[in-house]
Amino acid sequence: MEADWEIEISLETPVIDAHWSGFVDLRTRPDIVATLEEVQHFPPLGIILLRLNGPSSADIPSKPILFWSAKCDLWTPESIDPDEMEASPAESAFVRACYIDLIPEDDTLFASLPSLESHARRIVAYLRTTPVRCSRVDLVLRQAVTRDSRGFGITAYTTVCGSDGAVAEQALETALDALVEAICSVKTS
């Protein structure tokens, strides 16, 4: 899998707002994940979000969480570079993308950009060893705010492609699963 990270912190760059008007805390209300518009459009995202936020269901494999989600979205990018995803032109006919804003669960990690950068580097290293073609993950470290404090978070962008819509949707599910596995592995290693 192709993966990379970067830091975007300036007056002009976006800030992750963990309590925007549509915020749903899936750590305390996992039962409403199915009501999220993004999950209704792409049901596998519901399982991904529950895994990230510490599922309460025994049906969903769980490892200790490092982050919780503040926001997510799905879209179809206008274009991609197939070479960046080890894809042929035929395999890049359909493209899907998802982002998830992640806030560190640990206050020390939330407050320390160097610590968050270290975790991002380890997540990316793990992803680069994951055999998932036609996909790419980009971790963007940026400022984040919660109700009580300012710190740092990660916007995780996942982009995939496929020869048709169904193949691209399956690739997105696989790539997001790999992202969660990488996050969980960094936490436990």
Rank of each mutant, 00 (worst) to 15 (best):
K71T: 01
S163K: 14
T159R: 14
P30G: 07
K187H: 14
V33Y: 00
A182E: 05
T35H: 09
F110G: 05
L116N: 13
L50H: 01
T155A: 11
P77R: 03
R136P: 01
Y99D: 07
R27V: 13
S149A: 14
P30S: 07
P77W: 04
T188P: 03
E6A: 10
W5H: 15
F110D: 06
E6Y: 03
C184F: 10
I80P: 02
L172D: 07
H41F: 09
E86T: 02
E38C: 08
A166W: 00
S62G: 07
V140F: 07
I123G: 07
D106A: 11
R150Y: 08
K71R: 14
A178C: 05
W75P: 02
R121Y: 06
D4W: 00
T158V: 15
L50D: 05
A156R: 06
I123Y: 06
E2N: 14
F42Q: 08
P131V: 11
E12D: 14
D83C: 01
V186S: 07
P131N: 13
D101N: 13
S62M: 04
V180M: 09
V167S: 10
R150C: 05
S135K: 00
T28F: 09
S149F: 00
S69V: 04
L49C: 05
V145M: 00
A182K: 08
P104F: 09
P61D: 01
D138H: 12
A93W: 00
E37T: 14
L74I: 06
L179K: 03
I60H: 01
E86M: 05
I32T: 15
I47F: 01
A125N: 13
I9A: 05
V167G: 00
D101Q: 09
S62I: 02
G46N: 07
A168C: 06
I60T: 03
A97V: 06
F42E: 05
R27K: 15
D73M: 00
E169W: 12
L36N: 09
V160L: 13
D31N: 11
A125Y: 05
D4N: 13
C161A: 14
W75M: 01
G162I: 07
L127F: 03
D107I: 01
T130Q: 09
P43S: 11
P77K: 03
H119Q: 14
G54Q: 09
T76P: 01
V167H: 04
L113D: 12
V186P: 04
W75H: 05
S163A: 15
L74C: 03
C72G: 01
E86C: 01
K63T: 08
M1T: 13
L74D: 04
P30L: 09
R133W: 02
P77N: 10
E8I: 02
A125I: 03
